[in-house]
């Protein structure tokens, strides 16, 4: 899932300072699962904003709405009937959702309530970890199912570097060395001989470095 984290309330309050009528739009996709921008978070943030504003003697009207997804036009369109009554949209979706809102509703600003942090999963309840950098050319079959681009702090394809110590990364003893994980896994799979192969330089043109990307499926297009 796309993992996000709510921006500090102070920052959100400053962002919405000019407005008195606001749509607070959550998303039932990834950000609901990672407890950053689903229905519950919308409800909570709306209450926090209203409380803050009441305390300043300047009430705010908030329309709470949580869409199925903010990354699909059909759901984004659902707020069209009432969007004209508001001054801004505060989106609790990932950066995609905020941008889709901005693209669809051009008269009022779309504001980000979250910092979109990474593509990852839940390690355990309340803890989310990064697992994918969306590099556009997966190498997991070469590295025992552990991503060197994401898990190695230097994205080395032929690691580990000289800073790997007791299974930990040089940037922080809390961070596991990605290449230690890869080697452990290759050993488990009986594929350690793979390590001797030099993995050639990556084609980064398939990642963000090649500019904004697009996936097109002719068979599905209308």
């Amino acid at each position: 899932m796309v993992v996000g984290e709510q921006k500090p309330l102070e920052e959100i309050l400053e962002m919405i300072e000019p407005y008195d009528r606001l749509i607070l739009a959550g998303c039932k996709g990834c950000v609901a699962v990672c407890a950053a921008g689903g229905e519950r978070e919308v409800r909570f943030l709306a209450s926090a904003i209203k409380t803050a504003r009441k305390a300043q003697g300047r009430e705010i009207e908030i329309r709470e709405v949580t869409l199925e997804r903010q990354c699909d036009p059909e759901y984004v369109e659902q707020i069209r009937p009432f969007v004209g009554q508001y001054q801004a949209i505060l989106s609790l979706a990932c950066g995609v959702g905020v941008q889709f809102m901005a693209e669809h509703y051009r008269q009022i600003p779309a504001l980000p309530g979250l910092n979109t942090t990474f593509v990852g999963g839940a390690e355990r309840q309340g803890v989310w970890v990064e697992r994918c950098q969306c590099c556009g050319q997966c190498v997991l079959h070469l590295t025992g199912g552990i991503c060197p681009i994401t898990r190695c702090s230097k994205s080395l394809l032929n690691g580990p570097c000289g800073g790997s110590s007791n299974g930990r990364c040089e940037i922080d003893p809390e961070v596991p060395c990605g290449w230690q994980l890869i080697l452990d896994r290759l050993k488990e799979l009986g594929q350690l001989e793979r390590y001797l192969e030099i993995i050639p330089p990556k084609d980064w043109s398939l990642s963000r470095d090649g500019g904004p990307r697009k996936v097109q499926r002719e068979d599905l297009m209308r």
Binding site: T51, K54, A55, Q56, G57, R58
Partner: peptide
């Protein structure tokens, strides 16, 4: 009192 009732700003 809770500033929500007075609107007196941040406490």
């Amino acid at each position: 009192p809770n500033p929500v009732k007075t609107g007196r700003g941040k406490e």
